[in-house]
């Protein structure tokens, strides 16, 4: 089995340096690029297994690179953003990024995100087999029968609750923006009605989480969206 490769597109050498060592610790062979143009070439030639992308690059915006990249590649992308404005993160996620980190970030955090994405990519999302997906030790989702059980007891989910859960499961580990979730679950007419999403998410947490205020699986990305861990 050949080594996994990672590509860092970041103009700041000091940041590249430690991101590189963090990824090498995870067993990646790391390539670097410092511009949008260079990054696209590297991504095309190296075919990386994960891509760490800075949003502010000297010759362009990381979002435009993402849009270009997504037309021909499904490589998982983690975006690094120095901007606190959630709008930029949402734009990057809507453009096809899988996850984001706000600078400054910890090494452990970066490594955990990369691992989560890699797990999903290799297809064994969740610790189950076939159509059965497990959330922690208690909740089991049977995708084939569209049924959910908690501690062995069947749980009743409404149609929309189930659809929301299934959508999150299909993109496990990835941050889904409010807009993406509303569009997928409720339909394009509802992308502005984010209170629907919040209410149904609260219902789901009541049913699936041991402590709905401190959820283990159904995580909130404040101002951005949700993610199923």
């Amino acid at each position: 089995m050949h080594a996994l490769t990672a590509l860092i597109i970041e103009d700041e050498a000091a940041i590249r340096r430690f991101v590189r060592s963090a990824l090498e610790d995870e067993g990646y062979r790391v390539f670097e690029a410092d511009t949008v143009a260079r990054g696209l070439i590297e991504a095309g030639t190296r075919k990386p297994d994960v891509l760490v992308l800075d949003l502010g690059l000297p010759d362009g915006d990381g979002v435009s690179l993402l849009l270009d990249l997504r037309s021909w590649s499904k490589v998982p992308v983690i975006v690094l953003s120095a901007r606190v404005d959630e709008v930029d993160k949402i734009a990057a996620l809507d453009a096809g990024a899988d996850d984001y980190l706000t600078k400054p970030f910890g090494i452990g955090e970066l490594q955990a995100r990369v691992r989560a994405l890699q797990r999903r990519r290799s297809g064994d999302a969740g610790e189950g087999n076939g159509s059965l997906v497990r959330l922690g030790d208690t909740v089991t989702v049977d995708l084939a029968n569209r049924s959910v059980s908690r501690d062995g007891e069947p749980l009743h989910l409404t149609q929309l609750e189930y659809r929301l859960l299934a959508t999150l499961l299909a993109h496990r580990g990835k941050v889904l923006t409010h807009r993406q979730l509303l569009q997928e679950v409720w339909g394009p007419g509802y992308v502005e009605h984010s209170h629907y999403l919040r209410i149904y998410m609260a219902h789901l947490r009541q049913k699936l989480e041991a402590d709905p205020a401190q959820p283990r699986f159904l995580r909130t990305e404040t101002g951005v969206g949700y993610r199923l861990l």
């Binding site: 120095a82 606190v84 400054p104």
Partner: peptide
């Protein structure tokens, strides 16, 4: 935004490399 970017970039490099060193 510029201020935020200019301050956060060196701070990221600083804390990231410090953490690498520590590890």
């Amino acid at each position: 935004a510029a201020l935020s970017h200019d301050l956060r970039t060196p701070l990221t490099a600083l804390s990231g490399n410090a953490e690498t060193l520590l590890l």
